[in-house]
Computed example of a mutant assay.
Amino acid sequence: MEIFNDLLKFSVVDIIDVFLVALLLYYIYKLVKGTVAINIFIGIIIIYLVWKLTEFLNMELLTGIFGGFMKVGIIALIVVFQPEIRKFLLMVGSTNFNRRRKFLSQLSFLKTENSDETDVAAIISAANKMSASRTGALMVFERNNNLDFLCASGDAMNITVSQPIIESIFFKNSPLHDGAIIINNNIVKATRVILPVNNETTIPKRFGLRHRAAIGVTEKTDALALVVSEETGNISYFKDGEFIMFDDTQELAMIIKEDLS
């Protein structure tokens, strides 16, 4: 009966509270999904639930142990989740709300297709041609995090994405071919952009500055990156600081479209 009475007291504020918590958990999951941190995140949830269960059952010794772990462990969690926390704060602080009519349209399950959808097919076709000619390229796709702070390091542009445009930018004799380009809503926002470079020694030595820059920008933001190697012609796709080399570019096109949606 007490539970039933509590349900009757459930107010609009409680509904908003539950919704906001669910939204926060969704964004946290989105940040750690596909990384090693997801296992740590699940482990923390399990420990928290066990702590609350022991507290409910009045198991004082276990409650004290788990309670102490949760209080002291917060410092360790800040260290462990430093990249994810940085990315989350960047997402909250630099999301470009002005480019969306409504705040709720940021939620992926409420988004609809529109005319601004990036022409992934044209980008992949350009990447294939540059791969065949061993032309190096680095393309960054902006998502929720606003990358204007990176665009400022290059040349501002406002060019609609097309295969000839991409190829001409990265043509070896072009004055724009150095650095990265940033693409958002089918528009090349900037060229010759300088990206943060990852200097981890665990990265294979065969990777050059383009690959390290792609790892760096996808670690620090939620952006995606596509790299064409000048040495081998290999096409690599970067997300959350991790990369995959693709031979089947049709599969790659499908993955990029899904990630951008």
Rank of each mutant, 00 (worst) to 15 (best):
C151S: 15
N145H: 14
I42M: 06
G136P: 01
E60P: 04
D247T: 05
L23H: 08
A253P: 04
F246V: 00
V18L: 06
G241E: 01
K71V: 15
L25P: 10
E142V: 00
G34S: 14
E142I: 00
N96S: 10
K30S: 09
L7A: 08
T191K: 07
G68P: 08
A122G: 07
I181M: 13
L110S: 05
E231V: 07
N5T: 07
F207A: 03
M139V: 04
A132E: 10
L23N: 08
I28F: 14
D155Q: 13
A213Q: 03
G216K: 01
M59D: 04
I165P: 08
S162G: 11
G233M: 00
S162C: 06
K52Q: 09
T135Q: 13
I244G: 04
A225C: 02
G216T: 02
S236C: 12
G34Q: 05
I42Y: 05
E219R: 15
F243Q: 06
F141S: 03
Q163I: 02
T95H: 10
M245R: 12
D155N: 11
A37D: 12
T54D: 09
L53Y: 14
A190L: 02
Q163Y: 09
L252K: 01
F243A: 08
V80R: 03
S261H: 14
F66V: 04
V193Y: 04
I78S: 09
L77N: 12
G216S: 01
F103K: 03
F10N: 04
K172R: 12
S11Y: 02
E142G: 00
L209H: 15
I123S: 02
T63G: 15
K172F: 10
L7Y: 10
M130F: 02
I255H: 13
G43M: 13
L49M: 10
S125Q: 09
Y237A: 00
I38D: 09
L138P: 03
G64S: 12
P164K: 03
K239Q: 13
T54A: 14
N184Y: 13
K129L: 07
R101Q: 12
V21Y: 15
I45C: 10
K30C: 02
R206G: 13
N98K: 09
N158H: 14
N198T: 06
T249V: 01
I40P: 06
V92M: 13
I78D: 07
V50S: 15
S174E: 09
M1Q: 12
V197D: 04
